[in-house]
């Protein structure tokens, strides 16, 4: 009995995992399947895998007007820039909220958190009109700033709790030793914040990488991102499942790899220092 329980647990876990990964497995299998097998039932499991879908997606040999590889590059630029922006403005804000006692601090903290509720479906039209008036449509900033703002409340709150977990005595001691405030933050605080920053950056990157509505509405071709391009594989004439799943696999892969590599930091960072 003692030995049976862990075995059952393992079995259950692997079974749930199989179920969870089923759609992803389907995606990858379809991407490497020859085109006329992708819809056949019973599902074909034994076939000679083909890379042709990946080749045509990444060399622009599809009916889409843009090479999907270029869209991935746009996505990469937007994601990296918006994540950096979120961290650049988020880290000082988190530090200020955690360490500096000033009037209105609490109200500011609550307001920052409450901006997270703004649905993109509501803000997209005003932002669209604004961007048209400022001639910002189809430029990088028009996606970078909103994406940074989408993840900023979460970034600030995750980092604020991480900072609060750093004993203040360490900072005091550092300053007594003659370090300037800025140097102290750089030398003492930032290294301790790395798990929190990694977790916040990863979540922020996932949000930006996968965003669809703003990307569809605010870009044309120069800044069009991968999720908008993915939509182009389905049309009135049917869906190009091979190309769609190949493009989707390529899109999902970097996020998956990053999640795999950074998962331990992610778990640490997600604790929000929430213990009461």
């Amino acid at each position: 009995m003692r030995k049976l329980a862990p075995l059952l647990l393992r079995l259950a876990l692997w079974a749930i995992l199989a179920l969870t990964l089923f759609p992803i497995v389907w995606m990858v299998v379809t991407a490497v399947k020859p085109a006329d097998m992708s819809q056949t039932l019973p599902p074909v499991w034994v076939f000679r895998p083909t890379m042709s879908n990946f080749v045509s997606v990444l060399t622009g040999k599809t009916y889409a007007s843009q090479n999907f590889g270029v869209l991935l590059l746009h996505s990469l630029i937007v994601t990296v820039a918006s994540t950096l922006l979120a961290l650049l403005v988020g880290v000082p804000a988190a530090y200020g909220l955690a360490r500096v006692r000033f009037r209105g601090r609490r109200a500011a903290a609550t307001w920052i958190l409450s901006t997270i509720m703004f649905p993109p479906a509501v803000s997209v039209v005003p932002i669209f009109i604004l961007s048209a008036r400022l001639s910002l449509t189809d430029t990088y900033p028009v996606l970078i700033v909103p994406y940074a703002a989408f993840s900023l409340p979460m970034v600030i709150w995750m980092l604020r709790s991480s900072i609060k977990q750093i004993p203040f005595e360490i900072e005091e001691a550092a300053m007594v030793d003659g370090l300037s405030q800025l140097a102290m933050v750089r030398v003492i605080v930032l290294p301790l914040l790395v798990p929190g920053i990694v977790a916040a950056a990863l979540l922020s990157a996932i949000l930006s990488w996968n965003e669809f509505l703003f990307a569809l509405t605010l870009t044309r071709s120069k800044v069009q991102t991968a999720p908008v391009g993915l939509n182009e594989f389905t049309s009135m004439y049917g869906t190009q499942w091979g190309q769609l799943t190949a493009a989707a696999t390529v899109t999902v892969a970097p996020i998956l790899v990053m999640t795999l590599v950074l998962r331990r930091r992610l778990v640490e960072g997600l604790s929000f220092g929430a213990v009461k």
């Binding site: 007007s65 843009q66 939509n231 049309s235």
Partner: peptide
């Protein structure tokens, strides 16, 4: 220079 959109997003 031709940009294309699938019909489901074309009207928008």
């Amino acid at each position: 220079a031709m940009d294309t959109m699938p019909y489901n997003a074309l009207q928008q």
